[in-house]
Write a protein that binds this DNA or RNA. Structure first.
Lengths: 246, 246
DNA sequence: AACATGATTTTGACTACCCAAAAACTCAGG
DNA sequence: CCTGAGTTTTTGGGTAGTCAAAATCATGTT
């Protein structure tokens, strides 16, 4: 055998928490691309090692070793050469980490007035250092918010997540009155650009025209501003249709 | 040689930060016991390895190895078989860690309404995870406080610390009108007990009697309450004499 | 069926810590 | 000046990660 270690019960390290979170997000992400139900080969949510290594930011061999340890601890199911999937226990832990991450982001933006483009890396470190007691205080202080500054749903303490999964801006027919609910890209540059255009969760927009030839989506904001997005960006902005009340 | 490693420039690990902080506190603590100026043997602030190992919570050999690494990085001066002392650079880092720790404690108590008896371990972890940007926001939010909930002075961003070092309750003559400024023990039980008696920073007290035979100090609070402390406890409560106004 | 390509796993080696216990040192008392 | 008690250092070994590069495996193409 080679590198083996036990994951000590009860207290996961920051590294373990991070792997679990990434696996969860990749699982959820691939389910979101709507090809899960389509291909019936039961590969639903299986995350490939290369993909995991990439998102965690380690060499492929490192990910393999870690995943084996996670499997030995009952946190994931691992099929060699195929991929990983979280067990129920692993998913519970992952959701707890995600809850911490998103509540922290919301707190930093709402209370400490940080910019939504800069809170992600901060939360990335704080999510592993915060106690349940403090998390509870933050949750109470914010009034039990449902979403973070990017519109991502905050899992409950019991481990439930809302699955709103609205349509992306690119899928919506022109003319509909829409509200931005979620922005799927955490990179500071993207977030700063969207904020400059007024495209934050809560913003009211209408698709003026989707020019498929040019690969652009033309928007009209409630502030009368016009904005043109490329298709890649339009795919990252999720919206819901608005009721007819103002 | 044996265990050697380089401390990567610029970014100290949580462990390194912790060693530096502990060395600082031991140095400062021994200076506070007023035997520094007394014995002129230039041992001012030299921290013994056993002492360091104890406060950091590691075996003596571990402390020796770490201190050598710190010395190689220019953060401490190390004299084998004698002890360690921070260099200017090491002290600057230590003060920065201490600043983070104390601002976090103040924030948790003031804003998130946590109890002063429970914030210490929380801050112990958060102090290594927080960015300078966030620290600045916290400092601004609190209105640049000078002390934390225990009355400990918060170092400035520039690395200056107020050195109030008032008298301890046990040293004060009976009858003087006093104000509690600082509580030197962070242990939850002690802090809870003191809070129950109303002995927090800002509390107004008078020493009614110091019974040296019994080893007790009898206090009168502004709330008319009477409290009796043992000498060990009375040594940990620092006070200043109050001006004659109200 | 044979192969090439790309993904995955294994190997071997490294860093940043940690401990227990043996060896070396210091220093006060006789 | 010698001894022994207490402290400090060294030795040897362990854990939780990490990487680079070699070996292996799965797959689509001829």
């Amino acid at each position: 055998m080679f590198w083996v270690y036990k994951i000590s019960q009860a207290m996961a390290t920051a590294t373990v928490e991070d792997y679990l979170k990434r696996i969860y997000l990749e699982q959820a992400g691939s389910a979101g691309t709507a090809n899960r139900a389509a291909d019936g080969d039961a590969a639903g949510g299986l995350v490939a090692m290369g993909q995991l290594a990439r998102v965690v930011g380690v060499a492929p061999g490192t990910a393999t070793a870690m995943v084996k340890a996670l499997a030995d601890s009952g946190l994931v199911n691992y099929e060699p050469y195929a991929g990983v999937r979280l067990t129920d226990h692993g998913e519970k832990l992952a959701l707890h980490v995600l809850r911490r991450h998103r509540l922290i982001e919301q707190f930093l933006v709402e209370v400490l007035d940080m910019d939504w483009s800069e809170v992600h890396p901060e939360a990335e470190r704080l999510e592993h250092a915060i106690s349940d007691r403090l998390l509870e205080r933050i949750d109470a202080y914010l009034g039990r918010p449902r979403t973070d500054p990017h519109g991502d749903p905050i899992p409950t303490a019991g481990g439930r997540v809302a699955r709103p999964e609205r349509a992306a801006l690119i899928d919506v027919r022109a003319g509909r009155r829409l509200e931005v609910t979620r922005v799927l890209d955490q990179s500071p540059d993207f977030l700063r650009a969207m904020a400059r255009h007024g495209l934050r969760p809560g913003a009211k927009v209408t698709v003026a025209r989707h020019d498929e030839a040019a690969g652009t989506v033309h928007l009209k904001l409630s502030s009368r501003r016009s904005v043109t997005l490329g298709e890649a960006a339009a795919r990252k902005i999720l919206v819901k249709t608005r009721r007819r009340s103002n």
